[in-house]
């Protein structure tokens, strides 16, 4: 990735506390347009907290976070502007159970982007086709398998046509046989050139698509490297210990 491409996410010296607990310590991270970042690290290291700060589901207390040129502050207008551009996929899917798959996908375009209904539905069908489940459009989330639900969640996020997609352990809640179908969809998204930030322990995925792997431990970014270097010659002891555990 050339250093000239536009910076999509800039995290500068960010600190965050939960009461006395220092959950993010001096985090610095730059994500350029089209880059794909994988964040890994042990449980409780602050991975989710970091990406949730990037779309302000959590507020940071020190430092600056700038997304697509907009600095995140308490200003609700800015927060909404950032959220429109950052798609989020959660570990627990978080589909809306009282709505059909199609309505899940059209809701935000209609209410947030003020898109006409038929246009939103056409868009939703397009992205449902991309995740290979257009035939499930009229079903309810409760009638789908976990893998199908997560693919709907990806389609739902894409319907907002965001510039950035974030994933928080999208395959951790899935049965092993469904992990691949979701990863395939994510790889395809990467091939489309989407800027992606993925918290995941799927190291095969990291090798295949990531430009950089970021390793976090105890609220710090311990190591940041291209996948090749990261897996073959990690520098930090904590990284080595972590890799030894999961590989």
């Amino acid at each position: 990735m050339s250093d000239k491409s536009k910076i999509m996410i800039g995290v500068e010296n960010v600190n965050k506390w939960y009461d006395d607990f220092h959950v993010l310590k001096n985090i610095n991270l730059t994500v350029r347009e089209g880059e794909r970042i994988v964040i890994a690290g042990p449980s409780g290291s602050g991975k989710s907290t970091l990406i949730r700060c990037i779309n302000r589901l959590e507020a940071h207390q020190q430092g600056r976070i700038i997304v697509d040129g907009v600095e995140l502050t308490d200003d609700l207008k800015r927060i909404d502007a950032v959220r429109r551009e950052v798609g989020m996929v959660f570990q627990q899917f978080n589909l809306f159970p009282h709505m059909s798959v199609l309505d899940n996908c059209t809701l935000a375009p209609i209410w947030v982007r003020k898109m006409p209904k038929d246009e939103a539905e056409a868009l939703a069908m397009k992205y449902l086709e991309r995740v290979k489940i257009p035939e499930q459009a009229t079903k309810f989330p409760g009638q789908l398998s976990g893998g199908q639900q997560q693919r709907v969640a990806i389609a739902r996020a894409r319907c907002m046509q965001p510039k950035i997609m974030q994933f928080d352990e999208p395959t951790s809640a899935l049965d092993p046989e469904m992990i691949k179908e979701v990863l395939d969809v994510m790889v395809e998204l990467a091939l489309d050139g989407m800027t992606m930030v993925c918290v995941t322990h799927e190291m095969g995925f990291a090798r295949q698509v990531a430009n950089r792997v970021v390793f976090m431990d105890q609220g710090e970014i311990v190591e940041e490297a291209e996948p090749e270097t990261f897996f073959s010659s990690p520098k930090n002891e904590r990284t080595k210990a972590f890799l030894a555990q999961i590989l």
């Binding site: 589901l57 959220r83 429109r84 798609g87 989020m88 978080n94 009282h98 947030v112």
Partner: peptide, 26 residues
């Protein structure tokens, strides 16, 4: 569940949209 609020907020829905479309109907 909290995830319902977060999913709605994450796509940029306002407080009242979130309540009216997602939370209250359920």
């Amino acid at each position: 569940p909290r995830g319902q609020y977060e999913a709605a907020r994450a796509v940029g829905m306002s407080y009242w949209q979130t309540m009216g479309q997602i939370i209250l109907p359920q």
